Each structure stands twice: as structure tokens, then as C-alpha cells.
Simulated assay, not measured.
Amino acid sequence: MRQCEVYLHNICAGVLTEEDNREYVFTYDKSYLSDEGNPPVSLTLPLREEPYRSPYLFSTFFNMLSEGENRQIQSQLLRIDAEDDFGILLATCQHDTVGAITVKPIV
């Protein structure tokens, strides 16, 4: 199981988990939900207490990943399988992402 904290505008919005069965779970942080001024991380993941589950990496996070040659170069340089979406997300989306979302691996 691998996990990361998901930040929106440098505020911890929740936790994204890749479970051992390759199911993905996103859960909003309770303190994030308690502030009514906080927006959802995406229109496809509206604010709610119940976790979101998917057999695929949620499009919000998948769309943060490089494609094509850039992805191949990243996977070679980082020594991560090019098909390991979650691994590449953890390795490349901690800083300077396009958009307001960043992730921090939980070790």
C-alpha cells in the first residue's frame, strides 16, 4: 500500500491511497472539510466525508502526469516503471506542478 497527502494551494486536502489490490482511494481530510471556504480538489471529486474509490487512478491525478517521450525519460531517470502511474505521481508531483495540486508521499 502506498499513500500520499494531497495539497490544494498548499493546504492538506486529503489522502490518496493505492491499495494492494490496485484500487485507488481518495479521502478528504476532516479538518479540510470543516472549513466551508475550501474548494474541492476537482469537480469530479466534490467535497464529502465518504472516501472515493476507483480501479483507476482518478483523472484529476492522472492528468498531472507526463505523457509520451517525457514520461519515458522520467521513468528511466527515476528508475520507475513507465506503467507505474502512482509511483510517477509520487516522484514528480511534489513541487512545481501545473495547477494548484501537489502531493507529499507518506512513508
Rank of each mutant, 00 (worst) to 15 (best):
Y52D: 07
N70T: 08
S42E: 03
T17L: 11
L78M: 08
L47N: 10
S59F: 04
I106C: 14
F58Q: 09
C4G: 03
S34F: 08
C12L: 04
L43S: 13
E23L: 11
F61L: 08
V41F: 03
T102E: 05
D96K: 13
I101L: 11
A13Y: 07
D29E: 09
R79S: 15
N38P: 02
L90G: 02
F58K: 01
I88C: 15
E23M: 07
L65V: 01
L47E: 02
P51Y: 13
E50P: 00
S42R: 15
Q72P: 00
R48S: 10
P105K: 02
D85S: 03
V103Y: 13
I106V: 11
Q94M: 03
R22T: 07
V25H: 08
T92P: 01
L57P: 05
V103W: 14
S75M: 01
E19S: 06
T102M: 06
L77S: 14
Y56S: 10
L89T: 04
S54I: 05
R48T: 04
G87I: 00
Y56C: 03
L33A: 15
F26A: 08
L78V: 12
D29G: 11
Y56V: 04
V98D: 12
D35M: 00
F62W: 15
F62K: 07
A100Y: 07
E83I: 01
L8Y: 15
Y32W: 08
E49Y: 05
S54R: 06
D35C: 11
E83P: 00
M1H: 14
K104I: 01
Y24V: 02
G14A: 02
P51M: 13
F58G: 09
F26N: 09
E23P: 00
D96F: 04
V25W: 08
P40F: 00
E49H: 07
P40D: 01
R71H: 10
S31D: 10
V98G: 04
S34K: 12
V107Y: 06
V6L: 04
Y32L: 04
I88D: 14
T102W: 11
G68S: 05
Y24N: 11
I101R: 13
Q76P: 09
D29W: 01
I88Q: 15
D29H: 09
P39W: 08
V103Q: 04
I11S: 12
F86A: 14
S34P: 02
Y56Q: 09
S75R: 01
T44E: 13
Y52T: 02
E19T: 04
F26W: 11
Q94P: 03
E50L: 04
Y56W: 03
I88H: 15
D85K: 02
G37V: 00
L45E: 03
E18N: 06
S31I: 00
D20N: 12
I73T: 01
R2D: 13
M64I: 00
E18A: 11
P46D: 02
